[in-house]
């Protein structure tokens, strides 16, 4: 199997019959969206590109994803804590959540855990519904992001995500980082924007989500595990259950794990094509 074939398999996965129909509808939507967006004066090219939804997968530099080994997960929730520490998310915002008891009846009495970040889908259902193109899939690495300055906080994307991967920032704070405490002055490195948390200022009133800690990428869009520039949850995972990497890179762990083990993705029937896989 050539590299390209494998990449194709990974991207498309087992297609249901709805695939081609979906593609045709998608094409129509793109065409309509593009035609209309073109007719409207837009600031910058980003919104136009996002509205038109044109993206050639083969031109993408990276295809970041995760492979999560449910057999190695012990349910310690260190990933949740590490994520909070890294991104300084407020109460009620959890870029990753650890579930337990998801399978009933169980085969044995061992608990089953699953950590669930954003799946950064190939065909995200959240981005298309955004009325202002504030959330989109990045061209160079496929990470689904939110433009905090454009987002109006309508929360339509939260209803459209089938995986509950999006969170609304209500403006609450943990007691330790309440306003006027020294800790509150530490900005969040998210998106390399280093925003100070202030009332009524973004990201308060915005929809937030996991970014694969993209602020740890270098200028070429690359992570470096050895130097610690690696998504916080994967870096901290005590059982080494969370594997992160470029799904198209034959050198990466995730690439090999997907070839060697049985992987599943959640709600495959919706055609979202998540880039987070679970080994069972």
């Amino acid at each position: 199997m050539t590299h390209r074939e494998i990449e194709q398999t990974l991207q498309d996965g087992p297609r249901l019959d709805g695939g081609s129909r979906r593609a045709a509808l998608g094409w129509l939507a793109k065409w309509l969206g593009g035609a209309l967006a073109g007719a409207v004066v837009l600031e910058g090219g980003k919104a136009a590109a996002a509205a038109a939804g044109t993206e050639d997968r083969s031109k993408r530099k990276h295809r970041y994803g995760m492979v999560i080994d449910t057999r190695r997960c012990v349910g310690c929730r260190a990933c949740m804590v590490a994520c909070k520490a890294e991104n300084k998310t407020p109460p009620g915002v959890f870029y990753t959540v650890v579930f337990d008891q998801i399978v009933e009846p169980r085969i044995d009495d061992k608990p089953l855990f699953m950590t669930k970040p954003c799946f950064h889908c190939e065909r995200p259902s959240c981005t298309d519904v955004c009325p202002v193109s504030a959330t989109f899939k990045r061209k160079n690495d496929g990470v689904v992001v939110v433009d905090y300055d454009r987002c109006i906080g309508c929360r339509y994307c939260m209803t459209a995500c089938p995986y509950s991967a999006r969170w609304f920032d209500f403006g609450e704070n943990y007691p330790a980082v309440e306003e006027k405490t020294p800790y509150a002055d530490v900005p969040s490195p998210e998106y390399n924007q280093f925003r100070q948390r202030e009332r009524e200022k973004s990201p308060i009133g915005n929809v937030r989500k996991c970014t694969f800690c993209l602020h740890l990428q270098d200028e070429h869009g690359k992570y470096d595990k050895a130097k610690g520039r690696w998504p916080a949850c994967a870096k901290t995972c005590t059982g080494q259950a969370i594997h992160f990497g470029d799904l198209s890179d034959p050198q990466s762990d995730v690439y090999h794990l997907l070839r060697e083990r049985v992987a599943i993705r959640l709600k495959e029937e919706l055609g979202t094509e998540p880039k987070v896989f679970y080994l069972i």
Partner: peptide, 26 residues
């Protein structure tokens, strides 16, 4: 009043995404 950022409601006019039924509706 339901919007997270009320003062940005005009974004829908300036940055519309016509793939979104919400943009159409507005």
């Amino acid at each position: 009043f339901d919007l997270g950022h009320m003062n940005r409601a005009w974004h829908v006019m300036v940055y519309p995404n016509f793939k979104s039924p919400m943009a159409w509706m507005i």
